[in-house]
């Protein structure tokens, strides 16, 4: 099949509180090509995690995807019946979560949990599935996979559990892997190994990846393209190099300048970090106009009144700002 692995067009996700509906995500569009790793970066509450959940049909009330298209290899997930989405989930699109301990079933050996994928989605027999589960564990570089397959999640370390999650997610060779803060709960040396593993396995199999993190550095080093989210909007989308070197949206520029980057003090001495004033607004109180305007150093009259439309940034970027760099 030709075409991109995923196309999200004008996605809106509503949060219902009583009779009122708030747009927690609005006007979000992005495309992930086959085999590409795309990064979504933003702070808590910006809508990046619920965007991922919508792509796998896991939004539950009070959240719902209320407008837009989610095209997975040409099929619009939003118009599919629940049963059809369930059949796709795990097979064509899979997800790994931040905390593998809560995502894995504590009562089943991990080998069994991987084997389930082959039984459910491919109709394999249990003995056959268990054998393939050991192979799947080997592929995520778990030492002594035959023995580990019989272990329960609590017997494994955090890094090993996340490998099991990856084995489950990639078991049926999905076209798209959603990785929501996959290494936030891990130590840095283990994080580096897990990221290498995700990158290598997905490159080998041509799996597209949506990598979600609050860590700009991680996203920039892992992804070719990056989308920056703020208050439910995709405010900037760029080549990952450009996001750090020439951030265009004042929010992105502010974030980059506020981070104490490793090596910065060695290179240029200790400079006072640039602060972003104010706080991230809650979904129920997104400001009018540009949603960043109350915190923005370059905000003017128009920013308070008019929501900036997406503008093209040559060669292939996008920014939502009246005064972008």
């Amino acid at each position: 099949m030709s075409g991109p692995a995923l196309q999200v067009e004008d996605l809106r996700i509503d949060l219902a509180i009583g009779e009122r509906r708030f747009a927690a995500v609005e006007g979000v569009s992005f495309t992930i090509e086959k085999g590409e790793t795309y990064g979504l970066v933003g702070e808590s509450g910006c809508g990046k995690s619920i965007t991922a959940l919508s792509l796998i049909g896991l939004l539950r009330p009070p959240l719902s995807a209320s407008a837009g298209r989610i095209l997975l290899g040409g099929t619009d997930l939003r118009t599919l019946p629940a049963r059809a989405v369930r059949a796709l989930r795990g097979k064509r699109v899979a997800m790994i979560f931040q905390e593998p301990m809560t995502a894995l079933n504590p009562l089943k050996p991990v080998g069994r949990q991987i084997a389930e994928m082959f039984v459910l989605h491919e109709g394999a027999s249990w003995p056959e599935a268990e054998r393939r589960a050991v192979e799947a564990l080997r592929s995520v570089r778990v030492p002594a996979p035959e023995r580990r397959a019989r272990d329960y999640p609590h017997q494994l370390s955090g890094g090993m559990r996340q490998r099991v999650m990856i084995a489950i997610a990639l078991a049926c060779g999905p076209d798209l892997l959603l990785a929501d803060e996959p290494t936030t709960a891990l130590d840095v040396t283990v994080q580096a190994e897990i990221l290498e593993l995700i990158r290598d396995l997905c490159a080998e199999r041509g799996t597209a990846v949506l990598m979600i993190s609050h860590d700009l550095g991680l996203i920039a080093s892992m992804c070719r393209r990056v989308g920056v989210m703020y208050a439910g909007r995709l405010v900037e989308e760029r080549d990952s190099r450009a996001v750090f070197r020439r951030p265009s949206h004042p929010y992105t520029a502010g974030l980059v300048a506020s981070l104490p980057l490793l090596g910065a003090r060695l290179a240029g001495g200790r400079n006072r970090l640039r602060e972003i004033t104010g706080v991230v607004p809650p979904v129920t109180a997104f400001p009018d106009g540009c949603r960043f305007n109350p915190r923005c150093p370059s905000a003017t009259e128009i920013c308070r009144d008019v929501d900036p439309p997406p503008e093209t940034l040559p060669p292939d970027g996008l920014v939502r700002c009246h005064h972008h760099a």
Partner: peptide, 21 residues
């Protein structure tokens, strides 16, 4: 190894200098 494990936004990929836990 700790320093090498920090993702560098100006360089591609992360580099696990050590393995295991």
């Amino acid at each position: 190894a700790l320093i090498a494990a920090i993702p560098d936004p100006f360089r591609d990929g992360v580099h696990a200098r050590i393995t295991g836990e």
